[in-house]
Simulated scan of single mutants.
Amino acid sequence: MRSKFTLLTDSHWESIKNILTDKRKRKYCLRTIFNAILWICRTGSQWRNLSSEYPYWQIVYYYFDKWEKSGVLEQVMLKLVRKERIYQGHNYAPSVGAIDSQSVKKSAFVSIETGIDGGKHINGRKRHLAVDSLGLPIAISVSSANVHDSIGAFDLLWRIDKVSHRMKLIRTDKAYCGDFSEMVEKYYKWKIEITQKPPSEKGFVPQKGRWQVERSFAWLNNFRRLSKDYEKIPESAVAFIQVAFISILLK
């Protein structure tokens, strides 16, 4: 992970421009606008404090909102994931996934779909993430923090099924036992593997097949926009997680 924000290189832009551009004549360069979105995600700045080297913040936000609602950001992320998997000698569609969640505090003005995670004493939202064996994202969802891990993860299943026709195994911890595990095995016909560190162990203990998802959450910590949940709606929170992974995959 680089220590500071850097602009897209020519090769970076070439790898994603076909999804972002529609060959219309525009006053503002889409590459510059996408750089601005990456800058916001990395630095954590407010939209209204967007650096003057970029177009007006309202224009940048318009495209961020448009690309989030149309699924363009997800398309870019998944395209880069597939390219990286092929580059590392894997099939473009994963057959094994790992699921976990991360509760994050909300900022003061966020009030839609928030709650308190009683176990971690966090008032905010919960990020649900499914990754492949390389730690690359397969599916992302955001709920209020008071939603149980196994309930919030239901929203990941159809997303995983849409992305990969080869999925065979899902690795989780004991929080996902019960109805969630039953749904995975009976409806989707995937195997589920529950792993948990021994009660006698303290601190972080890498678990087979699941440490990758913990590392993926750690990658997100490098983006100040994700240090808390600053987004008014969960859909925007998901979009910024997608932007963060796009930045990671491009670099």
Score class of each variant (00 low, 15 high):
I151T: 15
W158E: 14
L220V: 06
M183A: 13
P206D: 09
N222M: 08
A218P: 01
P137Q: 10
R225Q: 05
V163S: 02
S216P: 07
I116M: 14
A175T: 06
S164H: 01
I194W: 00
R215S: 10
L129K: 08
S143K: 11
I170H: 05
S227R: 06
I116W: 13
E193M: 02
T114Y: 11
E231V: 03
D173R: 02
S181K: 11
D132A: 09
E182G: 11
R125I: 08
N221A: 15
S144D: 09
V213G: 06
D155T: 13
R224N: 13
H165S: 15
I116V: 15
K120T: 10
N222C: 08
K189M: 06
R159E: 15
E182A: 01
D173N: 11
H121I: 11
I192M: 15
S144W: 04
T114N: 11
K174H: 12
V142L: 07
A139Q: 00
G118L: 10
F180V: 01
S164L: 06
L220W: 00
E201S: 15
F204W: 14
R166Y: 03
P137Y: 09
L169S: 10
K197R: 15
I140F: 06
H128G: 11
V142A: 09
T114F: 08
S141P: 08
R127E: 00
K162F: 13
H148S: 14
D117V: 09
F180G: 02
S150K: 15
S150W: 11
A153D: 07
I116Q: 13
D161Y: 09
K174I: 07
N146D: 08
M183S: 15
K174R: 12
E193P: 03
G152C: 06
E231Q: 09
D132H: 09
I192S: 14
R171L: 04
K189Y: 04
G135Y: 01
P198S: 12
H121S: 13
R171T: 07
S164K: 07
L136Q: 12
P198R: 07
P206T: 07
D161F: 09
G209A: 05
G124L: 05
V131N: 00
G135W: 01
I192P: 03
I151N: 14
K174N: 15
E231A: 00
